[in-house]
Design a protein around this nucleic acid. Structure first.
Lengths: 220, 220
DNA sequence: GGTGGTCTGTGACTTAGTCACGTTCCCGTG
DNA sequence: CACGGGAACGTGACTAAGTCACAGACCACC
């Protein structure tokens, strides 16, 4: 298989040629359409997944139907949940869904284990990704437990706005991002609109006063 | 050094003799009195830690002074926060404090990396522990985001009660366990007392109706 | 027998979540 | 074009949880 994908992973691109070859020979490219369930509680994974492009949302769903996004896996990152299932036969209470069309590379379990043994650089990539996810999770705990919702909402709005000031997102999606309820998010947004900081319309939100929003997002 | 400690870790005890010897030769036993800070934001670790006895509490502290316990590391487990620092040079926003006197075994960074390479069983132990902590963290997120506080409080009371029905703990400590505020915990406890399910006194709580508490802890 | 520190209690208030609706908008089908 | 259904959003009334500013109460130790 072509080894061009490996350039998406600086740690792997810097590997000695024989390790690069080992990986590229055993990797298979896969394409996942938006909305695919990559993993779910009770389903064992059989490959190590490296995401080339697109985004996988890892979330928890409560018995009562509420959801919270734990983190997102995007291009250049690996999917810890499948890794863990490979290494520890662990089953998690979270599921992963592609938010966009996703291009990924899959390495079978046996080759993955061998790569861990033979390549310090590969090992480092895997451990680094574990650490990043643990950081992500700790950050979620911190936010959910301690931060005000209006502040978190402002953070999310700013994060979702790329260069464009218009964010295409529903109240429900924002609530899922924040682990809150749609009505609550709607009310907070309405208050922001009343202040003139955003303009609301069905399915999208225009950020009108970035400075004020940033102040809210960063304020203590 | 004596290799008796290795029996505390079934995965390691089952290792081939040469791997066991490798670990026991390089491990150093350490004793940490209660209240010792094992790691903290901004401090790099230099050894892999295996806990033999006692308990290390890993927690986050908010700017506003509120705290939440993320998980506890107890006998027979390893400390992935230090592991992560070893492997990924990551710095976390959490700190670890010994809750009791702790006996542990430390393996220097270089020996740790070598053990990862040479011993599949050791590798498995490390990855399994990563997975366990990720599970723990996801569980915390789920509880904080979705579960009622009275239910979580009942769970904690039951968890803290060993065989004895009298739990020695302050309202503040329970609040820290739950990531909540002392006053809130106090009010909920008072309500439980009014129902006759617990009896409160300074510094301790007597569980009077385990069935009712269990029903609360398990109820939807 | 004070005295400082820890632990707990309380009321008034704000913020967040829940529940049960109702309304509006969009888009495809008859 | 009407209209019907689903998705998105709005609202009010209520409960749960967190915050703030205190005030006691208990304990240990001079």
């Amino acid at each position: 298989m072509s080894d061009s994908w490996i350039e998406r992973f600086p740690e792997l691109a810097a590997l000695p040629p024989e390790d690069r070859a080992f990986l590229t020979e055993r990797a298979a490219k896969v394409a996942l359409p938006a909305g695919t369930t990559v993993f779910a509680p009770g389903v064992a994974a059989e490959s190590f997944l490296l995401i080339l492009a697109g985004s996988v949302r890892v979330q928890q769903v409560s018995p009562g139907g509420r959801e919270i996004v734990l983190y997102r896996v995007t291009g250049g990152e690996t999917c810890i949940m499948t890794t863990s299932c490979l290494l520890a036969d662990e089953n998690y209470a979270a599921d992963g869904v592609t938010e966009t069309d996703v291009e990924a590379v899959a390495i079978p379990k046996a080759s993955f284990e061998e790569a861990i043994v033979r390549s310090p650089g590969f090992r480092r990539l895997v451990f680094t990704d574990y650490s990043r996810r643990i950081s992500d999770l700790m950050h979620v705990v911190e936010e959910v437990a301690f931060e005000r919702l209006d502040k978190r909402l402002a953070q999310r709005l700013l994060a979702r706005a790329g260069d464009s000031p218009v964010v295409r997102v529903t109240h429900h999606d924002l609530a899922t991002d924040l682990g809150s309820a749609r009505e609550v998010v709607g009310r907070l947004l309405k208050e922001l609109e009343r202040r003139g900081w955003v303009a609301l319309s069905r399915g999208s939100i225009e950020l009108r006063d970035l400075d004020k929003l940033k102040a809210l997002a960063e304020g203590s």
